[in-house]
Amino acid sequence: MSILLSNISKKFGAFSALDNINLEIPEGELVALLGPSGCGKTTLLRIIAGLERADQGRILISGQDRTEHDVSKRGIGFVFQHYALFRHMTVFENVAFGLRVKPRRDRPSNEVIAKKVHALLELVQLDWLHDRYPDQLSGGQRQRIALARALAVEPSVLLLDEPFGALDASVRKDLRQWLRNLHHDLNVTSIFVTHDQEEAMEVASQVVVLNHGKIEQQGAPSEIYDHPSNAFVSGFIGQTNVFNLEHQDTDWLQTAGLSTLQQQGKIVHVRPHDIVIEKSALDSDAFVTLKDWQHLGALIRIELVKNSVNGQPASVYAEMPNEQFKRLHLNKGDKVDLKIRHAHWFH
């Protein structure tokens, strides 16, 4: 189901957590609410769920105004950061809970409940754990049970609060892929909150970047990466070298191939992989030296130091494939020439 948020604001005391949020989420999308901690992303998710009330604004789920609906009547599934499984119930009873609390006339029979719960547990590949208690499960297993529990009531929207936040790195990687596949199969509109830009880019079909209670940009992951709409988004998504034209000599940027004539602002962001380096000639007056490098798997991250004529030496990062780096035969301390292939300008 599609979700439409209009003019949502929320204040905690004097602190404005959300400031006039307008957001439209089409049906079937897997959306990431991405932002640094304290940006209001979890508050926004809780407002959509009905766990928190907005000071103003309306929430429409598939065209119907649900602003005044209680969380129990909104038809949403919510997966909590720390799972919030019922400790006193078995895995089976946890998943069955949403069906057992239905009003008597809507409540399925025990056989139907059992069938449905086992089907859901099979969907999350944990049917063999049905008689265990939550305390006996690992973090990844709990997360999947929490998801099965939320899906049991056939929600029109699935909301996940930092779904992978409390898991260790390898489990997190598996679950990301798994969630993406699950969403592909079920096609239920889903929103998840994360502060990890890599996770958002990897899992989501749409990313909403939030900062200080405002939406900075919304779009497909590639669009946000390739065309960041402002300096915050560019800096938050992926690695970036920031050059401030007011403080830095424009000369060397020009020698690096960045035409300051077509300058469209005062701040330049350059992605590490948009910087090409070459060994300088021995008598070159290049003032960039190679300081160190790190292996990141297929890529090498190269740390360069730029000795500016006036002021502090500044670090610049470049990235290139391993093979290419080997061919350059560079050593620490070598002087190098830079070439900037592409840059983003901001005011």
Binding site: G50, V71, S72, A84, F86, V101, V153
Partner: peptide, 14 residues
């Protein structure tokens, strides 16, 4: 954990 209560509410419990 109050989140357990919130989870129950979100599943439709009164």
């Amino acid at each position: 954990e109050t989140s357990m209560e919130e989870a129950a509410s979100s599943l439709g419990a009164t």
